[in-house]
């Protein structure tokens, strides 16, 4: 199914905020479009969704773009706000969060783990530009090892959450997330399908989606702000699950799908409260 960007945009997005103020060549818009297209294909309406964001490039550029209700948290806290909101919202409202890698996997990781643990119904799209780019380009927790950034001028040499067999998605699986996937922004319709599945899971879903940052990441690591170079670099280092090569950094596809397999957080809370209210016991 294909849609013209302008049709999607006028149906779901506020004209005041589109186009965004992102840097020239930024790939965030590709991720954003993937999410909006998934919403459109699921035939969800503006009022069906409450949009949450964080800070940094991903949060700042997507906040207030959704025509409906929107909330932005400070660094790493939107998962806790969303969990409080989830438990008092009607169950048919979808919560979609577009956040960045530093927010989700750094400062917010504890809150994110507890959102996964409680299986709170929300879809978290982690838009990964490989570090802290809105602050000028410092390394983050998914920055490929060896990458030169403003805070790793000799190359990023620390262990991180996507190196040496470690994977932040393993942590989230262990914490109880019921849907986990990884994509790069060039995955297009395939990523749209994944995001649709993530939204349909009545529980905690997270899609980790890497996108190109020409301004900061690429200018330091690749020595060029040419968007084509960083687009190709990410594309060449991504491969679908089962087709990995030696130099693959992003193995793409659905990592874990236990959709609707255990009680959702707010449903569990409300059913329990109702039982206690009626009978005085569990």
């Amino acid at each position: 199914m294909e849609y013209k960007s302008s049709d999607i945009s006028s149906a779901y997005l506020r004209s005041r905020k589109i186009p965004s103020t992102a840097c020239a060549g930024c790939g965030l818009g590709m991720n954003h479009k993937i999410v909006i297209q998934a919403i459109k294909e699921l035939k969800l309406a503006v009022e069906d969704i409450i949009w949450g964001t964080s800070i940094g490039c991903a949060g700042r550029q997507t906040f207030g773009t959704w025509k409906g209700d929107g909330v932005a948290g400070t660094h790493g806290r939107i998962y806790a706000i969303a969990r409080g909101l989830r438990v008092v919202l009607p169950p048919n409202k979808e919560l979609i969060l577009t956040v960045g890698d530093g927010d989700a996997f750094g400062i917010g990781l504890n809150h994110l783990i507890h959102a996964a643990r409680s299986n709170a119904d929300m879809t978290v799209i982690v838009n990964d530009n490989l570090g802290y780019q809105s602050t000028g380009g410092q390394y983050g927790w998914t920055t490929p090892q060896g990458s030169k950034t403003d805070s790793s001028p000799y190359g990023m040499f620390e262990h991180n959450l996507m190196s040496e067999g470690m994977d932040v998605l393993h942590i989230l699986k262990g914490a109880g997330a019921t849907f986990l996937a990884r994509h790069v922004s060039m995955d297009g319709a395939w990523a749209v399908d994944t995001v649709k599945k993530a939204i349909l899971n009545k529980g905690f879903s997270l899609v980790h989606m890497t996108f190109p940052c020409p301004t900061n990441f690429a200018s330091k690591e690749l020595g060029s702000r040419d968007p084509v170079k960083i687009f190709n670099w990410i594309k060449n280092h991504a491969a679908p699950m089962g087709q990995e090569k030696d130099d693959t950094i992003w193995v793409t596809g659905i990592y874990h799908d236990a959709s609707n397999s255990r009680p959702e957080f707010s449903r569990l809370i409300h059913e329990t409260v109702e039982k206690i209210r009626r009978t005085g016991t569990l």
Binding site: I50, I55, G64, K67, G68, D69, V71
Partner: peptide
Amino acid sequence: VLGQNTGALCSDW
């Protein structure tokens, strides 16, 4: 109050 379809926006900025 979110979820009332008022188009409310609230942020830390």
